[in-house]
Simulated scan of single mutants.
Amino acid sequence: MSSDPLTIPPRSLAFVTGATGLLGNNLVRELLAEGWRVRALVRSPEKAARQFAGLDVEIVEGDMLDVPGFAAALAGVDVVFHTAAYFRDSYKGGSHWPALKAANVDGTRALLAAAHAAGVRRFIHVSSIAVLDGAPGALIDETMERQERDADDYYRSKILSDREVLAFLDAHPDFWAAMVLPGWMHGPGDIGPTSAGQTVLDVAEGRLPGVPPGSFSVVDARDVARALILANARGRRGERYMAAGRHMTMAELVPQIAAAAGVKAPSWRIPQALLYVIAAGNEVYARLTGKPVLLSWAVARSMAREAGRTRFDPQKSQRELGLTFRPLAETLADEVAWFRKNGVLTAG
């Protein structure tokens, strides 16, 4: 819980989509610590039972592909925090545009309409730094929008979902919404795990043969959760707020992960050309087995395209929301500790 608790009306009710995910579960915990009541949308009640054991959370089973199926649960809600998103093309080979559009674009449109029909008038949308772009080395702010022609399918789905929010605001003057743009999220509670968590596990268990090229903007999911609450309390209607964290190359990040896990970091640098070869092999493996892979062709191509384009300017969020970021060493230590406590990581 932050040392700067926000004043909220007593017993305010938050509806959180994607509640068992890395961001969603940390948001639920932060909301509870701030005195909110929480209604959590989950696809798996079993996963929710594990994630929220001992917490006073109202569980709603549902899926963003069927918003009418859970729309009744939006009654009485004060604010919707929309963290759910489909991003499995980061794990599997091939194209996943139909699924990305159905969940991220059509699902967001349906959720906005259902929330408004239920009497909800506040909405915090989790966007992504993927909707922004700049030249290599440039400091990127919220005004530097990515063009669709420069977006892969996942990035495009996030661009279009943002447009759904803005279009809804234009059509409904009585509705309020703001957007928060996270970077590559790490932290405890990664039950999935996400690609970030899988990277930590691969380093900790010695499965990463070398250091991949590329750079990222790394952020603690708990800091992003805080940004969502701050955006609801202090943000302006229709505005974007960055919660991207800090620019890091993989060569900088991997040794810090290794230090947190107490293992030796790989030192060999994987050339970009070899990364494409590995990705192509992973694509074949994914198609033959149906199993997820850490490095798909889309990920390899994105790493090459985005290298150096991961410096994001936090000034607007710092100035308007009062957002701060914890040290990366704390994030990684807590992430590793959570994996160990939950039996996901046994090495070390």
Rank of each mutant, 00 (worst) to 15 (best):
S217P: 02
E239K: 06
R309F: 03
V211D: 00
L274F: 13
R222Q: 13
L228A: 09
P292M: 05
A251D: 13
A279F: 06
M242V: 12
Y285L: 14
S195C: 02
R236M: 12
R301H: 14
V224D: 10
I278Y: 13
A273K: 02
V211P: 00
E239W: 06
H247W: 04
G206Q: 07
T194Y: 01
L201H: 12
A196S: 15
Y285M: 09
D202F: 12
P314Y: 04
A243T: 06
L288S: 05
A243V: 06
M242C: 04
F216E: 14
W268Y: 01
E239D: 15
E239L: 08
P255N: 10
A261R: 09
G210Q: 02
R287P: 01
H247N: 06
V254H: 07
Y276L: 13
V224A: 09
R319Y: 12
L253P: 03
P314H: 12
L201C: 13
T199Y: 08
G197A: 11
A265P: 07
V224P: 06
K264P: 00
M248S: 02
A227I: 07
P314C: 04
R287S: 15
R319G: 09
A279I: 10
L228F: 03
T199W: 12
E283H: 03
A304I: 05
G206R: 05
V284G: 01
Q256K: 15
G214S: 03
A227C: 12
V263N: 09
A279D: 11
D223I: 03
T310L: 08
A196V: 02
F216W: 08
D220N: 14
T310P: 00
P209A: 04
M250Q: 11
G235H: 05
G262T: 09
N282S: 04
L228V: 06
Q272T: 15
V200G: 07
A260L: 11
G290L: 05
M250G: 00
L288H: 03
M303W: 14
A260Q: 11
A279M: 07
V277A: 15
P292W: 06
P193D: 11
A300H: 13
A244R: 02
G262K: 08
A244D: 00
G197R: 12
E306F: 14
A300F: 10
A233Q: 12
V218M: 10
F216R: 13
R309H: 08
L230D: 11
P255D: 14
V200K: 09
V254T: 10
A265I: 03
P255M: 11
A298M: 15
P314M: 11
V219K: 10
V254E: 10
H247D: 00
P314G: 04
A251M: 08
R237Q: 10
Y285P: 00
A196R: 04
G235W: 09
E252N: 01
L275G: 13
R287Y: 10
Q198E: 15
P212M: 02
P266Q: 01
A251V: 01
T289I: 00
L253I: 07
V254C: 09
K264C: 01
L294A: 11
P209V: 05
S195M: 12
S217V: 03
R207Q: 12
S317C: 08
Q315M: 03
